[in-house]
């Protein structure tokens, strides 16, 4: 058993009368690649936002390396996180290179030239040419935006990466390429990753461990080989929706 990097204990969150997360327990081990699957509206993105401190839970706790992600700790922890948003969430008023190196824009650690070099290095890592650096997000295709989003997420060599629906809105070929790219990056950075998806191909490409989120709590979790072989009805339904 790998040592636990993120520990979620009895997490609950409601929006008005709707209870989105219900006493959710989950652990993510160091170096592990966890993929959380589930249908639309089951609370996957909400869970991710709670881990990142973008939403505050009603009860329960989230610990990162044994400490709570709140208050002064939050900024320190966030510097160790990298996040790819569903729609890439690139800053449309900035060129690609500035998006990638934005974390360091107001830091004295890097000069402008160094930031641009860093961005170009990360662009190469995600398979984009140097010429992309000066383009604006509106000038990029959906797949390129995802790649830039990945480059931004890995710009600070984070300890843990979060991917929210990395293949949504992409054609199957591009989705395959993005999955392959993420696979390579996970290996290259030896990072812990948490991916949220409802794309089974992403599960196969990225997961060490799979968790099924249903009605706000974890309905099933196990290793990838267990995911492939389990006859748990909800997981089976997810794998072969046409047979139900």
């Amino acid at each position: 058993m790998k040592s636990s990097l993120i520990n979620i204990d009895k997490l609950s969150l409601s929006f008005g009368n709707k209870r989105v997360l219900k006493d959710l327990d989950l652990q993510v081990g160091k170096g592990e690649s966890l993929v959380i699957i589930g249908g639309s509206g089951e609370g996957k993105s909400v869970l991710l936002k709670c881990i990142l401190g973008l939403l505050h839970q009603d009860s329960g706790s989230i610990n990162f390396m044994g400490a709570k992600i709140i208050g002064e700790n939050k900024q320190q922890f966030l510097s160790q996180f990298g996040m790819l948003f569903q729609g890439a969430a690139l800053f449309d008023s900035m060129p690609v290179w500035e998006n990638i190196s934005f974390r360091y824009k107001y830091s004295k650690m890097f000069t402008k030239t160094e930031r641009k070099d860093l961005a170009k290095e990360k662009l190469a890592l995600v398979g984009l040419s140097e010429n992309t650096a000066d383009l604006f997000p509106a000038e990029l295709s959906g797949g390129m935006q995802k790649r830039v989003g990945i480059a931004r997420a890995i710009a600070s060599n984070p300890k843990i990466l979060f991917f929210d629906e990395p293949t949504s809105g992409l054609d199957p070929r591009m989705a395959h390429n993005i999955n392959k790219l993420l696979q390579d990056i996970i290996i290259k950075l030896s990072a812990t990753t948490v991916t949220i998806t409802h794309d089974v191909s992403s599960v196969k490409a990225l997961a060490d461990k799979v968790a099924l989120l249903e009605s706000g709590s974890i309905a099933w979790q196990g290793k990838t080989n267990e995911f492939n072989s389990t006859d748990h009805p909800n997981v089976s339904q997810f794998k072969n929706p046409s047979s139900f």
């Binding site: 973008l54 966030l78 800053f91 449309d92 974390r103 931004r152």
Partner: peptide
């Protein structure tokens, strides 16, 4: 709407 504000937060801004 496009989650750019959330992106700022995750970049520790």
């Amino acid at each position: 709407v496009t989650e750019q504000i959330d992106a700022l937060s995750t970049l520790a801004i």
